[in-house]
Amino acid sequence: MPDHIAVEKFELQRAGGLFPAAIAVVNEPLAVLIEMRHSFLHADELVSFDKLKMPKVQQSYLLGRYAAKKALGALMNNIKLTDAKISSGIFQQPVLYLAGGGNIQVSIAHTHEMGVAIVFPEGHPMGVDAETVDNQQSETIKEVLTPGELEKLHLVHSDATQSLTLLWTMKEALSKVLKTGLMTPFHLYEIESAEQKDGIVICNFVNFPQYKALSWISANHAWSIVLPRKSMLDMEVIKKLYLR
């Protein structure tokens, strides 16, 4: 994983054509993000940020929005990052507003140290999630898995903790696509199959066969992108995010 930021623009291939998208991964300390916030936050976002008092909340807010704005800048040339505003929908999902920006939307995830965001056309829904690999969290994650998923842990990753964390990110990313968040029982997001391909695990879902997850481990983090099952994403794009 890069020390500061990695940004990749890519195209999603489908039988009906190509869909442009972009993803950004950010690793910046809070002091740096605060110093540069005026270069990427919208005026309304600056007001929202000033109301945040806890450093962890401040860092999460800035990591997510910086990643989102950098991804947006890669997708759309010649835009001013501060013209774009990300607000929260009624289910706390991020909603992107940009005058003349069309129907571009965003999915955001963050941990204490990393932020990731993916921007995409509204007509091609996607979701992203990231979690720190933590042994102490593995037992909690195991409680939300189905018996079938527990039997497939070894197919996701040879390390149980990493496998559990990857499964969690898949479910989170799918919930973001569906805009349900944590309000829907996680067993409904059960995976049906898992296969490894060049260090990336590809999973399909039992109840949502129209989607798939692309997941990987990097920098002690589990990462997942959920996208329509028949869409093709060049795996080299993902590799550039963590092999750079």
Rank of each mutant, 00 (worst) to 15 (best):
Q196Y: 03
L166T: 15
L188S: 08
D134H: 15
N207A: 07
H112Y: 07
S193H: 11
K176E: 02
T161I: 15
V106T: 01
A130K: 01
S215E: 04
H154W: 13
V201T: 14
S175K: 08
A194H: 11
A194K: 08
W168F: 15
N103D: 11
S175D: 05
S218E: 05
L145W: 08
H154N: 13
F120H: 11
M170G: 04
T161D: 14
I202L: 06
L167F: 13
E192K: 03
G102D: 05
V106H: 02
T132R: 13
P147G: 10
L188N: 07
Q105T: 13
E172Y: 08
V201I: 12
E131H: 06
L188W: 03
L167S: 13
M126T: 00
I141R: 00
E139Y: 14
L166E: 10
M126D: 00
A213S: 11
D198Y: 02
V133C: 14
T184K: 04
P147H: 10
A219H: 09
L164Y: 09
K171P: 15
L182F: 12
H157L: 14
S218K: 03
M183S: 07
A213H: 07
E122P: 00
E195Y: 10
S175M: 03
K171N: 08
L145Q: 12
T132G: 08
W168I: 10
L182N: 03
G115I: 00
S107C: 01
K179D: 09
L214F: 11
D134M: 14
Q136C: 06
M183Y: 10
T169H: 11
V156P: 02
A99R: 04
A194C: 08
M183P: 02
K171T: 13
M126G: 02
E151L: 09
K152N: 14
K152A: 13
V128G: 00
S218Y: 00
G115V: 00
T161W: 09
D134L: 15
P94A: 03
A117Y: 05
T165M: 13
G181N: 04
A173M: 02
Y211F: 15
G100F: 01
T165Q: 12
K152H: 14
A173V: 08
I217E: 00
M183R: 14
K212G: 05
